[in-house]
């Protein structure tokens, strides 16, 4: 029964959409705002052993530790404006609250390990991106494929701001915009859903091991075109 109700609802939304002859994102006069959720995959910072030095100059492992920025679902807001035919520019804001987590294993002196020592962080990113619509449309021109690349200023507040870490976030990927409805008059002109699949590269400054790390991200949002 519930499945039937849900299906009916979607049909209703799709049903109000008039025929949409124009490409979903090719109108150069329209500003578009989207808001939704974004899942970011874990970022592994690798493993470090707590080593002591032996008399021969070798190492003796007291314990091992593997650290990561945990996967997290957060929010993403984007404001885009078509620039020229098939190309748009976009301002992006992100907010999420992952953990920095260190898992300790193999302590030579205790069976109390493994343990996981984590700390909560707040993560903000503000940046810009360029979108290119290669002209691939799906679902009878309701959906447009796009390719996206951008960069952002990435700020992390660790443990409620005890420490502030700033870095850069480079993103690349693509997605799909699906037009749910449009009209020729009124304060909004089009509504739609958007899906993004991205690779996020966090710069060395924001990592624990001084290296750049790439993690996947998936986004789902609704957009309004004005």
């Amino acid at each position: 029964m519930k499945r039937l109700a849900a299906g009916s609802c979607i049909s209703l939304i799709l049903g109000v959409a008039p025929a949409y002859g124009q490409a979903a994102s090719s109108d150069p006069r329209r500003v578009e705002v989207s808001a939704g959720v974004e899942w970011q995959g874990r970022t592994s910072f690798g493993s470090r052993d707590a080593n002591e030095t032996t008399g021969s100059g070798g190492t003796f492992r007291l314990f091992s530790a593997a650290s990561e920025l945990t996967s997290v679902s957060g929010f993403a807001v984007r404001v885009s404006m078509p620039l020229i035919r098939r190309i748009a520019v976009e301002a992006t804001g992100r907010y999420s609250t992952p953990d920095i987590s260190t898992r300790v294993t193999s302590d030579v002196e205790t069976s109390n390990a493994p343990i996981t020592a984590a700390v909560h962080v707040k993560q903000f990113a503000l940046g810009g991106a360029a979108l290119w619509y290669p002209g691939v449309s799906l679902f009878g021109s309701r959906a447009m494929v796009f390719v996206r690349a951008g960069a952002a200023f990435d700020r992390r507040l660790e443990d409620d701001g005890t420490r502030v870490v700033d870095g850069t976030l480079i993103e690349a990927g693509g997605g799909l915009k699906y037009l749910l409805g449009s009209r020729r008059t009124g304060w909004w002109r089009a509504l739609g859903a958007r899906a993004d699949i991205l690779a996020l590269a966090r710069g060395a400054a924001a990592s624990l091991d001084g290296r750049t790390h790439i993690s996947p991200a998936l986004g789902a949002s609704m957009f309004v075109r004005f």
Binding site: I100, S101, T102, V104, D107, E109, T110, N112, A113, I115, T116, A117, A118, V119, E158, D159, T162, R163
Partner: peptide
Amino acid sequence: FRVTYLDRAVIVPRRGDSG
């Protein structure tokens, strides 16, 4: 007493104390 880990990470701030 047994070897014990604190079950959370502690953030060391720049030029300050963790609390």
